[in-house]
Nucleic acid binder design. Sequence first.
DNA 1: TGAAATGTTGGGGCG
DNA 2: ACGCCCCAACATTTC
Length: 477
Amino acid sequence: MSPIIVWFRQDLRLADNPALAHAAASGRPLLCLYILDDETSGRWRFGGASRWWLDESLAALGRELALLGGRLVLRRGPAEKILPAVVREISAGAVVWNRCYEPYAVARDTALKTHLANAGIETKSCNAALLVEPWQIATKAGAPFRVFTPFWKALRQREVTRPAPVPRTLTFFAGTVAGDALAAWRLAPIAPNWADGFRPHWAPGEAGAAAKLDDFLIRAVDYPDLRDRPDLVATSRLSPHLHWGEISPRQAWHAIRAKTYELPDDGEKYLSELAWREFAYHLLYHFPTLPDEPLDAGFAEFPWTDDPAAFEAWSKGQTGIPIVDAGMRELWQTGWMHNRVRMIVASFLTKHLLIPWQRGEAWFWDTLLDADLANNAAGWQWVAGCGADAAPFFRIFNPVLQGEKFDPEGDYVRRFVPELTGLPARHIHRPWQAPAIALAEAGLRPGRNYPLPVVDLAAGRARALAAFRARQPARKR
DNA sequence: TGAAATGTTGGGGCG
DNA sequence: ACGCCCCAACATTTC
């Protein structure tokens, strides 16, 4: 039989991989292919941190396949050209892949499907990334959901497919196929190697993902209480693995469900976080401008400010607000940021600094190892108040209070802002108010070895309230 | 998955 | 003992 191409994308795993399972069951010899397509993705081509992860993850997948006698063929270029070319080279009779939901990917894959079908090639696409396809869930009126809670209630009633194991037998295509060497893609940074700090925290690949899940399952009992604490390891830290498809949401879902009776909240809190991920994909699918335009058209005229100096301070963790700086430095050093802190830094950028959410979105896109078009866009719009089910305009996080509440000892700040190590907990989240003696004992000279706040918090809050209130509809009297 | 302002209540100090 | 005041502590409303 003619070979079947398994086109890997954001599904870099062997277990619970429907496309791979389909190929294995087809009886055809498999050719596993990955295409680095920086052209089709355009403005949303992989950022720097993503490329580091991809480098590692492709190597891991290649090793897994090699152990089974197979190989991952690497090609680079627009998939619309590359995929048909590989089909011709090996006279493939079929192509199978798992779906992507980025607007550019949907368009590309739809076109490819038509093109291949017209050439007499069998094609099939599968769901490997979502609990429920965006088009399979709708409001009673048949419209896409725009509010999380009803979406979650609808999703919660669904039966989630059980994850499937790695196919028992895989027969690989034996012919020769040209492929790039992974190293030739130069995905990882060389000099300066800013990714050095990533490695202690992350093990890209399917095995690393499974290890992270196992680790989380041990800690899952504490999740409802401690998940908002950035100073602790209380969350799953699965986000990059989920983004790259090294683990499926079905696997995480059922792993938690299996422990229902051991968990204080029956695991509902974590499941609802998986549902937020689903909600983001639902929104991106139905509102494809989500990454670029505010969902709420009323924001078209919003008076965002262009403040390059403030943005620079924010992105480098030099705002003078400790919890913000700790978060931005955690992101830079480890490629990841605790979700609570993401909300804090995003609120600070969009409200206190009035900088467009798209600027923050773009920075996260470049620096997050879990940079995900749907989650990133939906999250930023939620914080900015212009998205679906968005935070009300008046919900402005006070980074001092948030710090004191969720990093009560200041350990998180000390870990990433070593300048502040010597300050006691009661001063560490507001060094500009610390008494001179405490500053002296800590060796801290505000404005010298740690910045003064880039904005007065009360003034920034007042300015944001005025700007956001201005675009609210007139109040009833 | 807010924060700040404003309102209410009740205990304790004190004349 | 009583009334007054202060002010935590908590609740409500407003942004």
